[in-house]
């Protein structure tokens, strides 16, 4: 069984928002709701500054706090490690929003369902690749099987020493080059 994850190389991301728009498209989100958020991080002080754009979305954590707190088991993890929301079971209580350390949960209007990035999951499998990966103008995103040492994503994580955004906190499956 595959264990899906993603690599985001902030050293290649110019912050063009194409991924956000592609994601809105495939997920049918209106212009003012988005599963991908951007944080501009400044390090250092003038003139020794480094600035990066950090796109953040659901990290598909192995220890997903949003899943643990969900009172109706609406949030679940597939065998291939993708964290999903069963919209029929979601009661919109927002516990998951409070629990997510990445602020990746979005309450949709007007359904009230609290959704998030699903790796473009439809009919039993993730997108090949997910829309955000396919549209990236600079190849800053790689998607693949974290359990396959021959996969591009595994090789790139090893080569770049990419790390989850918050270390081992939730055993996130999105790795960042920063």
């Amino acid at each position: 069984m595959a264990r899906y994850g993603m690599l985001i190389d902030t050293k290649k991301c110019v912050g063009c928002y194409a991924c956000r728009i592609a994601c809105q498209m495939i997920n049918g989100l209106p212009s003012d709701e988005a599963f991908i958020k951007f944080y501009e991080e400044e390090q250092g002080s003038y003139p020794n500054v480094y600035a990066e754009n950090v796109p953040v979305q659901c990290m598909h954590c192995e220890d997903a706090p949003c899943q643990t707190v969900c009172p109706t088991t609406a949030t679940y993890t597939t065998d291939s490690g993708v964290v999903l929301v069963d919209e029929k079971k979601c009661i919109g209580c927002k516990y998951c929003m409070a629990a997510c350390p990445y602020n990746a949960r979005v309450q949709l209007h007007p359904s009230g369902v609290v959704e998030k990035c699903r790796f473009c999951w439809y009919e039993g499998e993730p997108g090949n690749p997910p829309a955000c990966v396919g549209t990236c103008i600079s190849g800053a995103r790689i998607f693949g099987d974290l359990d396959d040492p021959e996969s591009e994503i595994c090789k790139e994580i090893a080569r770049t020493n990419a790390q989850p955004l918050a270390g081992d906190l939730t055993r996130a499956k999105i790795y960042y080059v920063r």
């Binding site: 928002y17 194409a18 956000r20 728009i21 498209m25 103008i137």
Partner: peptide, 22 residues
């Protein structure tokens, strides 16, 4: 329905930026 950057175009190289989508 959808727009995609042209693979063989020397500027697009298969992608469109956010403006192209918008």
């Amino acid at each position: 329905w959808i727009v995609n950057g042209m693979e063989d175009h020397p500027y697009a190289k298969g992608t469109l930026c956010g403006r192209g989508q918008g």
